[in-house]
Design a protein around this nucleic acid. Structure first.
Lengths: 232, 232
DNA sequence: TCATTTCTGTAGCGACCACTAGAAAAAAGA
DNA sequence: TCTTTTTTCTAGTGGTCGCTACAGAAATGA
């Protein structure tokens, strides 16, 4: 009845037996074949379809009936495989995070300075938010604003604020390392970058092209002292 | 049956007679007393309540039953006075525009330079978006994202893009007047300001304080050459 | 007083919402 | 083959959506 998380990290409602399951004392994923009727659809493919639907229309405006149509499965199959609508959305958000929404984290981890990381993040935002093949803008920014389910709204807001906190922490590290001047207002600079990314996402939704967003990003970047090693 | 616009500029469904109405040849608003049972609520007060509800929860997530509750009127009264839900929302957006959402237009009209206008707009945005007594952020930005009624979504998007176009046109005027260098990318600079305002609105929704937004605005303003006369 | 006009409350319309009971179908194990 | 397990399809559940028919209430004009 209740959703659970199984060994491949995905939330499921009733996939996998409710009994002691695989590898209670064994070696993990020994069970390769389940026992009953096999699923007639590919779970990940269906999840991708759900991602596109939620990305385009948001959590509330995407009805279960919309979902079953684009995923091409019946409602009972959806509920059996993904739990309820909220669990499905949470799983969609997780997939979005790993596939489309991790460029800022990657930039913060891989670039040598905060300045270079933000430069790369803004530049990649311009690309990602206008990429063909999926809706424009950021799902985390737009899929649960004005949502009558407060928990869903909060979960996305937490992700947005966590992103800004990560930028701020990277900036503080540079200040501590002497890469940025000690008087740097790390919180404000991080919030500026976050607001910029979110504003660019809104602009992408409103029709701005990649080139236009890149021009915006370049302007926004000029507020940073040029101390990084990443030369755009 | 069909909504109509009467002489005070407000959209109404069946307020005012369908006959030749007041002042077909007379002096305008001669009719002060209507004929039937008088309305038991103040139309503007009810509209303000609707504004707050739509502002907080957005177009879709605010149901007619929510509206009748906060406006403290019955559904038939709502429909008689405001038409359907969409007309009511449009009127709410108009009220929002005149009461809360015109600071950019005012700044563009009153400040001597584009730079000063954007500075004032960003500063007033920080104040307006965090003002107590009403929801944070901008209704035009947040009330109809992920809306399953495309016309409503488009109407707010048009307003956002019109705002940016107005900024761009003000910048072009300064370029033509020699206040800004000829090489200025007016479109990008305007879009940057628009994205900044929208990002600040999102930040306000996500919990940023007025002071935090002002710090962001100050950073964002540093991309402009300091040629204005408005000294913040 | 009475007819006319307009608004208000009740009560409910069909459509859609998220969700599910129950039976048939398709696999594995005995 | 027969049982067990799981998924599928059909057909709904109660609830809410935006919206309205209808009758009574409250005003004006005759």
């Amino acid at each position: 009845m209740h959703p659970m998380v199984n060994d491949d990290g995905t939330a499921k409602a009733s996939t996998g037996p409710d009994t002691d399951s695989a590898g209670a004392a064994g070696g993990g994923k020994a069970r390769t074949k389940s026992r009953g009727r096999p699923r007639s659809f590919d779970r990940e493919t269906a999840l991708e379809k759900a991602l596109l639907a939620f990305w385009e229309h948001g959590y509330e405006a995407t009805s279960v009936s919309d979902l079953t149509r684009v995923m091409d499965i019946g409602a009972p199959s959806l509920y059996a495989a993904f739990g309820d609508k909220r669990s499905l959305f949470e799983e969609v958000v997780r997939m979005y995070g790993t596939r489309h929404g991790s460029f800022t984290d990657r930039a913060l981890a891989e670039e040598p300075t905060a300045r270079a990381a933000v430069e790369r993040a803004l530049c990649e935002a311009a690309t990602a938010y206008t990429e063909p093949g999926h809706p424009h803008g950021c799902l985390v920014v737009h899929a649960a604003t004005n949502c009558s389910t407060p928990e869903v709204e909060k979960s996305l807001r937490d992700r947005r604020n966590a992103n800004i906190a990560a930028i701020e922490s990277r900036i503080r590290a540079d200040v501590a390392a002497g890469v940025l001047p000690p008087a740097t207002d790390a919180a404000a600079l991080a919030r500026h970058a976050g607001a910029m990314i979110q504003g660019m996402s809104q602009q992408a939704r409103d029709g701005a092209s990649r080139e236009e967003l890149e021009a915006v990003a370049e302007i926004a970047l000029s507020v940073w002292p040029r101390t990084g090693t990443h030369t755009g």
